[in-house]
């Protein structure tokens, strides 16, 4: 068991070092950081929201958009690089199982995604904190109630986003395990992310009483079971700006749901990869 863990952690470490050195990662990290920083100067474009909500939304968007791109492209790229460069063959010729290889790839990628998410969340926290201090002074001058944000809510949101990106990465690995090309994986992975973000529509349509046909209901049932609900992780507004509106149990329930998906996709990816010809 210890040997397995050691081997997996070695693969994870190598994958992490390889990924963190990529220009693509640095580019998306800088792009997201610029997006978060520029939100303060773009606030004049806002209509009728609280200022902190507008600023926070930029960071949520950056995490969602660039995080998804990173999870999708980087996972597929790191996997296919091993296959195309034949390094996978060399590695798997050693006492290393395919499951360990795949799990190592996942953990390394997930760690890089963690660096991305927590860096952006930290930057967002700094921006929100500095703007809150300015707004507190303004509120004191005008006799209004000063806005505030929850640091623990921001931390919870960052964890949820990391988990969401983990689910995306596991899903992409599952596609990679059966796909032949990088491009195919990226296209199917992108469609899976969009479907995951819209899965709740199927889930709610199924829960609402309707006169839909058996075929429609069956399709809804299958899609709401097989496609992960990624929308449930997008509760940043509430967690950061109105933390009392959501219970801790509900957040834990989302974490648990994310972990279930993660394990399920990794199990399927591992099984598919076992049968794959390299």
């Amino acid at each position: 068991m210890n040997a397995r863990l050691t081997r997996t952690s070695w693969i994870a470490r190598i994958t992490f070092l390889e990924a963190i050195r990529q220009r693509f990662f640095a580019f998306l990290l800088v792009l997201s950081a610029v997006m978060v920083v520029s939100s303060v100067s773009l606030r004049f474009m806002d209509f009728g929201h609280s200022e902190l909500k507008f600023v926070a939304d930029f960071a949520f968007g950056g995490m969602f958009l660039f995080g998804s791109v990173l999870a999708l492209v980087m996972t597929a790229q790191l996997f296919f690089a091993e296959i195309e460069n034949r390094t996978a063959l060399t590695l798997l010729a050693k006492p290393l199982s395919r499951t360990e290889f795949l799990l190592g790839k996942f953990l390394g990628t997930w760690a890089v995604l963690g660096v991305f998410v927590f860096s952006i969340a930290f930057l967002q926290g700094v921006i929100l904190w500095s703007r809150t201090q300015e707004l507190i002074v303004l509120a004191a001058e005008t006799g209004r109630v000063a806005p505030d944000f929850s640091v623990s809510g921001l931390a919870s949101f960052a964890v949820l986003q990391w988990l969401r990106l983990g689910v995306v990465a596991a899903m992409v690995l599952m596609v990679s395990a059966v796909a032949r090309t990088f491009l195919f994986t990226v296209i199917v992975g992108a469609m899976a992310i969009v479907a995951g973000q819209l899965q709740w529509l199927a889930q709610e349509a199924l829960l609402k009483p309707s006169d839909a046909s058996v075929v429609t209901k069956s399709l809804l049932w299958i899609s709401s079971r097989v496609i992960p609900n990624l929308q449930q992780f997008n509760i940043g507004d509430t967690l950061v700006l109105d933390p009392t509106a959501i219970s801790g149990a509900a957040v834990w329930s989302v974490v648990l749901s994310g972990l279930f998906y993660l394990v399920a996709f990794l199990a399927l990816a591992s099984l598919a990869f076992r049968r794959r010809e390299i």
Binding site: W200, Q203, L207, S224, R225, V226, I227, P228, N229, Q231, Q232, N234, I235, D237, T238, L239, A245, I246, S247, A249, A250, V251, S253, V254, L256, S257, F260, Y261, V263, A264, F265, A267, L268, L271
Partner: peptide, 27 residues
Amino acid sequence: PWVVASLLLLGAGAYSETSWKGVRQAV
């Protein structure tokens, strides 16, 4: 193992209904 993994995915899907209900108000 395929059956187990598929059941795991179906279970995750079923559980997400519960977790989604908990956070639905926030979206």
